[in-house]
Each structure stands twice: as C-alpha cells, then as structure tokens.
Design a protein around this nucleic acid. Structure first.
Lengths: 227, 227
DNA sequence: TTCTGTGAAAGGGTTCACAGCT
DNA sequence: AGCTGTGAACCCTTTCACAGAA
C-alpha cells in the first residue's frame, strides 16, 4: 500500500465526486468522437456539459496530464484514458436479482450491453418465475446465488426486488462476494464499506423537483408562441 | 406568499443539496410510520440513513422547528411537514414523451402513481405507435404536445426518447411551459435556468462503481463461508 | 437527563489566476 | 496567442459543541 512519492502525491485519494463525473465526460467524448471532432478544449467540453472549464481540468489532473497546451485534448485519446481509469475497457458480467415487471424491463434494456454491462444470470424467489426464460436468460432460485456468482466470477449485481426484501437480498449478495450493487428498490441499503451501492430512484428525483414547482404560478396558457 | 420576518432570515435560499435529501427523509419516515414508530430522534433516523444526526437537524432547521427537545421528532407530523415542503400533498400530472421499450416500462411502473405522480398523456413521433393504447393511455403525436400540455396543465414531463432526439424534444417541452423534466436519455440537456432537470442513468451509476472494482482483486472463490 | 436547534469551526470542493508549454 | 495544469483563494457543506427546552 505505497503512498505519496516525493514528487507528486497524485492519485493519493481521489474524491468520489470526481469519479462520478468521469462517466459524463466519457459519454460526451464518445458523442464528440461520433461527430468526428478530433480535439476539444476544456472550454468547449465545459460549454457542452454546463460545467466550468477549470473543473474539467482539475478533475482530469487527478489522473494525469492528458491535454496539450494551446490546443486542448485529443478526443479519442482522452476517451480511451478515461475508459481505462473507470475500468470500461472490458466487459462486466452482472447478476440480476428480482424478475418482476422492473426486472424484466431491465433484462430487455439495451443500454447496459451497449456499454459493456452484461446480465449473465437472473434470480427470483417466486417459484412461478423460477425456471422461466427471459431474453434468453434462465431465471434461477435465489438459493443458487452463491454457486452461480462464484462460478461466473460476478462482481456486480442489480437489485430489482420489492423494498421489503431488498436488504435481505443485499446481505446475501454481499456474503457471496458481490462488490457493487445497483439498487432499484426505494430503500437505503446497509452494506460494508468496501461494497459500493448506487441508487436508481426516479421518484426521489421527481420529489426534489416538485419542491421548486410548488411555489411556481400554475402554468396555464402559452401566452405568446415566441418561437 | 410572505417572506423574511424581522427576526429570522430562514427560507432565504435553501441549498439544492438539502432539497435533494428531503425525499430520502420522507421515504424513511413513511417506513417508520408503517412500523408504527411514533417518535424518532435525529440519532435514530441518522443511523437508519447512514448520515450524521447533525446533518438531519441542520437540514430540517432550514424549514422550521419540527422537533421536541429531549424527545425527538413526531414521525407522522414531520412526514407531513416534509411532504408539504416538497409539494407532495397533491397529485402531479405528467406527460411521457417516447413510448419505446423504456417508455412502455415507465407506463407500467407502479412506483410513480403510488407516490402521487400520474402519467396522463403519452407522446411519440413514430406513426406506428401513435393511436395505440398502453396501460389505458392513448399515444398521441408529439405535434399535439402544446395543446395537451396546456389543456391538462402539465408541469412535469418524462423524456424517454433516443439520445439523438432528446434535446429537440426537451426544447419543445420547454416551449410548452413544462417546468420539470425527468430525463432518461443519456445526454446532458440544455434548458433555461427556471426549468429543472434530473437524470436517471443506471449506466453512469455502474460506470462510477467499476472504477472501484477494477483495482480490486478479482473475487473468485468464497474462501470461508463465515455466515 | 435527553435531544433539539444553531452559531462557530472544520473540512471539501470549486473557481481563480497565472506560470509554462505549444 | 491559446490553452493546460495547478497552487491559492474562495465558497459551500458538514460537523462540532453547547445553550436551552422538555
């Protein structure tokens, strides 16, 4: 566990908030690449993302020096570097727990596999669902979680079970060695510190927005179609 | 709409980050209510949410004094207050734009209506979909957005269109007077400052987690089933 | 005694501003 | 001239710690 060389204490401990922005940078760089843009400055990238150029430069400086003074960043190169930093230069195999409406929608979702996240096993505790096949994946009993996760070397799980079952299933996943959980259940999971959890909760997002709407005058008409 | 009494400049301008935590508090209080817990201290609530008691007290203090010293917070009362602050004491009517796989899953999702968010109109620009009925809602041409949004007094829209179309549809929504957009498309939307946008992006969440996984030793076995 | 509400202190994150490279 | 990389300043958020109410 070596730390802080004499010269540069870079990569010492990178703020989580910086990590969370990298995927956004990567996504935008990928679009720029599609648009055949070869070089982008922090100013241009910032304008596209609505963040300050300084923030982009500072964020990237945690990981290295990827730009050219007077020029900017080579899109293809920077994208490759960020993808490597995030560990996106490989395919990740995931387990899905919970195959209700939501779980089935997740299995059908193209966005995951397009970005290198493949659901390779699905689990449920409802005997009516166990044994069925969805999107080419067979639904197994959650009792088989330990064996399958170990055999497949799965490190990421998607939780799509009812709120009341989420913590228990998360406990099982942690015990099986899963190190990252994408949680669709509307509850705060308790996991050991080395296990990462992210929530997907559209309702919470809506509820934070209505705070701002409630004080607004109720929009009724479109007073002037100035467009 | 009275503001700032002589004594306390409270409610001056509340940090967005505080607003974003309120829905989590509300959700947890709702669970406590279901469990017939009548009073909760900031310490207990904090333990449940994995946040410090001080943060909870400070957050709530932006809006008023809801607790009793020596006792804590009355669950039912505090929940009611937070719901009122967030504007959750009413039903919100929403428009859905984009009725592909994702849009259909959203229409089928129970979580929205359970929390008072009702999709009352759905739109698409694909003639093959227009006119069809999904979950009892008829799919209309996006060209009808202005009329329907004005007639129904809709302030919130859900965007579930391909990334390439998201900005254009967002522009239309803004022009129609929509003040909040829940964006499922993997792009950064540009909207005027009075319009609120939240992103739902499970892939970005996964990509931030893989950063931490990539440095981990690849979990292979379950060396000791200590459970 | 217990626990809230809150100024003050501490801690982090963002932005500034500029040296230095192209 | 143009733009990066980065200390320093600034600002925002969290935590501390305690007066005061129940």
């Amino acid at each position: 566990m070596r730390e802080r060389d004499a010269a540069k204490p870079r990569r010492d401990q990178i703020p989580e908030i910086v990590i969370n922005r990298l995927p956004i940078y990567a996504r935008t760089l990928a679009y720029l690449e599609e648009e055949h843009v070869e070089v982008v400055s922090s100013l241009e990238l910032g304008a596209r993302l609505r963040v300050t150029p300084a923030q982009i430069r500072k964020d990237l400086s945690y990981f290295g020096e990827f730009g050219k003074q007077g020029t900017g960043y080579n899109v293809k190169y920077l994208l490759g570097e960020i993808r490597q930093i995030l560990g996106l230069d490989r395919e990740w195999r995931m387990a899905l727990v919970g195959v209700g409406h939501l779980g089935r929608a997740i299995l059908a979702y193209r966005g995951f596999i397009d970005q290198g996240f493949r659901v390779v096993a699905a689990f449920d505790n409802d005997t009516a669902r166990i044994g069925s096949h969805i999107q080419g994946i067979s639904v197994r009993d959650v009792a088989e979680l330990p064996q399958v996760i170990a055999r497949e070397g799965i490190q990421i799980a998607i939780l799509a079970v009812p709120a009341s079952e989420a913590q228990a299933q998360a406990d099982t996943l942690v015990k099986c060695g899963v190190k990252a959980i994408l949680n669709y259940a509307p509850v705060n999971l308790h996991v050991p510190p080395e296990v990462k959890v992210r929530h997907v909760d559209p309702v919470v997002a809506l509820q934070a927005m209505t705070y701002h709407l409630k004080s607004l005058p109720r929009e009724v008409g479109l007073e002037a179609g100035s467009g």
